[in-house]
Design a protein around this nucleic acid. Structure first.
Lengths: 254, 254
DNA sequence: CTCCTTCTGCGTATGCCATACGCTTAATTG
DNA sequence: CAATTAAGCGTATGGCATACGCAGAAGGAG
């Protein structure tokens, strides 16, 4: 499991090489009885069914009918497995939408797709990210996002920054959604009860004299309003893309 | 440690009551030898010095000269302690800046201050958030942010959404920064070596034919560019506030 | 065909962790 | 002084990641 260094430049983490299929099996020794993809799939299945905390090395091994330590022939540590789980979960991104003048449609589609993926697998946002993306599907998603920005007049650095901003936003939103859902499940209350209750709690604890702006928000009934679960996401996405649009227009007119 | 229900409405988690100083000590029984604030301070000190993973109940207890289980008289579970650690770390927010027409200066100041707090205590972004903010300082920060938006013509719901968006952004950015710093520390390389190396790795692994946009970014030297550590943050913040400005202008002209 | 290398699976062991439970004992009220 | 209440904490349970080293499989070299 030493990093290999077959070319010049910094070493590639072994598990990344494996994920890209760059590892040729040594001709000696017994045949591997497991596959990396199989291990990752089993782990994802557990996380989907019982949450991230149910994913332990021994649990994954049991699911595969193998011993715990067998997994360590395929991943160097648990957090490598987590990285691969996230990658597998995203899967191939949808075909990129509009480009050039239609960049906005394209990016919006990208964001909705990423959000959908995160909502199908809410545990993904709980995985502590351990570095910039290097895995196959992650880079595919990035690639498709960047393509939307072709022909917008932005510099390459700006395109990258926009993608960073956008993916961070989607992740943030998904994190919030997931955590509200968790709170709802934990307390046994329905989701449309949670927010009003939260408003009541804040009102109880925060002195109106010291927290006037907060009280104004709450007594306006913001927390009690019926709003589709997507409304918050739409709002942020619109703000964000408006901001990008301002920049693109500045670049085009200049 | 049962939730109390002294008024109508949903119960307040006991640790939150304690954080707001709403808990009167029962007159019987021995005097508490520890204080919640002291426990939290000890835990924060450990996290600052050795990272979040060094914070265990037994470690915190040892630092206080107490036994592990003594802490459970003050917090119901470890994640309550974590919540309080985060709150304590933020501390009192700076005085709110501009309001009304100066909302933008105010919000920018707010964002920079939150970012500064997160960078002084990078472990904060690793704490899994477990619900909407209810702790004293968290609500203070929210209050001050909301104040900046007074007189902008936004609805209360919109103000709240803007704050959600902004705080999510600051958090995202801090998470990214922290994780790059961690990678740098782990690999022993200097921080300005990390990004170019990352570019090289991507180039090695991603076929230019399948990842043209990505390759264009990398070969433009985006990863190798010298840029102040704040440039990325400034970019995102500007986009975001531009987006908010567009909305505010739409509200004012309408 | 034999031996040696190399790699897989895995049993065992270590040293963490959070936390449930119940005892002892201190502080207070009646 | 008795009864009550909560604090500190010893002990025990059941988890966890993972280091280490051995047994045996598969193939290559002679």
């Amino acid at each position: 499991m030493e990093p290999t260094q077959n070319e010049t430049g910094p070493a590639l983490p072994p598990v990344i090489e494996a994920a890209w299929g760059l590892r040729e099996r040594a001709p000696k020794g017994p045949r591997p009885g497991l596959t990396l993809a199989g291990i990752v799939a089993a782990a994802v299945a557990i996380a989907d069914a019982e949450g991230l905390s149910a994913v332990s090395m021994s649990r994954v091994a049991k699911e595969l009918g193998a011993a715990t330590m067998a997994l360590y022939r395929y991943v160097g540590a648990k957090d490598e497995l987590l990285t691969l789980m996230v990658d597998a979960t995203f899967g191939e991104p949808p075909a990129p939408g509009g480009t050039g003048p239609d960049w906005r449609v394209g990016l919006a589609g990208w964001a909705w797709a990423e959000r959908a993926a995160l909502q199908r697998h809410p545990w993904v946002v709980r995985v502590p990210i351990s570095g910039p993306p290097l895995t196959p599907y992650s880079l595919s998603w990035l690639e498709n996002g960047l393509r939307c920005l072709a022909g917008t007049g932005l510099t390459e650095a700006e395109k990258m920054s926009v993608m960073l901003l956008l993916s961070g936003y989607v992740r943030s939103d998904a994190q919030l959604t997931a955590q509200i859902q968790e709170a709802s499940a934990a307390s046994g209350r329905r989701m449309d009860e949670i927010m009003p209750e939260y408003g009541q709690l804040v009102a109880r604890v925060a002195d109106p004299a010291r927290f006037p702006a907060l009280h104004k928000v709450i007594s306006a009934g913001v927390m009690s309003q019926e709003d589709g679960p997507d409304d918050e996401f739409v709002f942020g996405l619109d703000r964000l893309l408006d901001g990008v649009e301002t920049l693109i227009q500045a670049r085009t007119t200049a």
